Computed example of a mutant assay.
Amino acid sequence: MASTKVTHKGKKQEQEAPLKGTWISVTVVGLVIVATYIVLYGLYMARI
């Protein structure tokens, strides 16, 4: 078999858009976790 050298010159992709979406997703998940914690803590304190 003949070996061939394959080179890939990819285009430089912008990183702004994916990072923006990632931060939005992380923020939403964080807010849901904090809201859940506050609700559960409130319910626990109401029980006492």
Rank of each mutant, 00 (worst) to 15 (best):
M1T: 07
M1C: 05
A2R: 15
S3Q: 15
T4N: 04
T4G: 00
K5L: 07
K5W: 06
V6L: 07
H8N: 02
K9V: 03
K9Y: 01
K9A: 01
K9C: 00
G10A: 12
G10D: 01
G10P: 01
G10T: 02
G10W: 02
K11P: 00
K11V: 06
K11N: 04
K11S: 05
K12F: 10
K12A: 11
K12L: 13
K12P: 00
Q13R: 15
E14M: 12
E14C: 09
E14A: 11
Q15S: 11
Q15R: 15
Q15N: 09
Q15A: 13
Q15T: 11
E16Y: 14
E16A: 09
A17N: 08
A17Y: 14
A17T: 09
P18G: 05
P18D: 06
P18N: 12
L19M: 15
K20V: 08
K20A: 07
K20I: 10
K20H: 05
K20S: 04
G21R: 15
G21Q: 13
G21S: 12
G21W: 15
G21V: 08
G21I: 10
T22V: 13
T22H: 10
T22Q: 12
T22F: 15
W23L: 13
W23Q: 04
I24E: 07
I24L: 11
S25Q: 06
S25L: 11
S25V: 06
T27F: 15
T27K: 14
T27I: 12
V28D: 01
V29S: 04
V29T: 08
V29G: 02
V29H: 04
G30W: 13
G30I: 10
G30R: 06
L31E: 02
L31T: 05
L31C: 06
V32R: 03
V32Y: 07
V32M: 09
V32C: 08
I33D: 00
I33F: 09
I33Y: 05
I33V: 11
V34E: 03
A35M: 13
A35R: 09
T36S: 14
T36A: 12
Y37S: 04
Y37V: 07
Y37Q: 06
Y37H: 10
Y37W: 15
I38H: 11
I38M: 15
I38N: 03
V39R: 09
L40M: 10
L40Y: 14
L40D: 01
Y41L: 08
Y41C: 03
Y41N: 03
G42K: 13
G42M: 14
L43K: 07
Y44N: 04
Y44V: 03
M45L: 07
A46G: 05
A46H: 12
R47H: 10
I48T: 11
I48M: 10
I48V: 08
I48P: 00
I48C: 02
